[in-house]
Design a protein around this nucleic acid. Sequence first.
DNA 1: TCTTGAAACTTTAGACTTGAAATATCTAGC
DNA 2: GCTAGATATTTCAAGTCTAAAGTTTCAAGA
Lengths: 161, 161
Amino acid sequence: MKNAPTLRAGVPSQVVSKQRLRVWLRLLKINKAVEAELRNRLRTQFATTLPRFDVMSALYRNKNGLKMSELSRLLMVSNGNVTGIVDRLTTDGLILRVAVPGDRRAACALLTAKGRTEFERQAVAHEAWVAELLCGLDEDNCAHALGLLAAARLNPTENPK
Amino acid sequence: MKNAPTLRAGVPSQVVSKQRLRVWLRLLKINKAVEAELRNRLRTQFATTLPRFDVMSALYRNKNGLKMSELSRLLMVSNGNVTGIVDRLTTDGLILRVAVPGDRRAACALLTAKGRTEFERQAVAHEAWVAELLCGLDEDNCAHALGLLAAARLNPTENPK
DNA sequence: TCTTGAAACTTTAGACTTGAAATATCTAGC
DNA sequence: GCTAGATATTTCAAGTCTAAAGTTTCAAGA
């Protein structure tokens, strides 16, 4: 099995490059459109924002709380960013910062009862919104898409030569 | 052909809803990872940012320039946002604001020669980066993905009831 | 014990982003 | 011509985001 003459290992052909770029641009577009709509609905219907929702979502799935660093790793945002969002959510009484026993550097964020209740309302609506916005995908499409997106998984941030 | 008892028109079944949510979360994750890497490389290798690249890209594809409102519509960002980015690119001599003859309200953004040259360098690298980051997708995968993403296209922002 | 480096956070400066308000201009109807 | 509403853009306040620098604490080795 020989490669075509113009192909070399690790260097995508021009055709594939263009194809991947098109996929990326399409992905980007859908992402932006869905995010914009979700932002809009979160704002008008729950007076909150996407980053706030994301933080609360992560904390809801981790009832024992998450350290600031775990939070920023999960959400793929910077440490300093999480600090600000957690500050504001704390001010609103939705989450709580508690000390981590045994490590006085660390802080653990935790949903309050109010935060849990509030998030549950939002999560139900959120799931319905996403289902509505992605209504073009039936069950088969979804399975297909999950497979493709799994395949597309990037190599773990190699050396940016 | 009767629907299953639990299905009603327009109300996705619980199973499909969960599936779509999973697709959305996966999509989001890949998007964030690719964007982060692109941002990083644009910063270290070209001392620029993704929004700046996006604006220049849109202007490169429209040699006759774009009105501020066209720019914000294409990039799916707010008007005020574009103002700031265009301001900074103008300061750097990469783009130019020119008056639109016949409409004194409008302003048209245009790449300068320097901007065009600079963008061409960036675009070559950008395409290679995307191709590298999406290396999990071969040509068939790409075609498949494009089809699915086209199917997923949202209904044009219906009434958010 | 001392000290050196790593780790967990926060702070900071600057850019990006939004929605809403403010300006300026255009268009049409009267 | 006037005026009311639409359109194009900028300005504004507040929130989001990043990279880099700063603070405090931890973990170990000398």
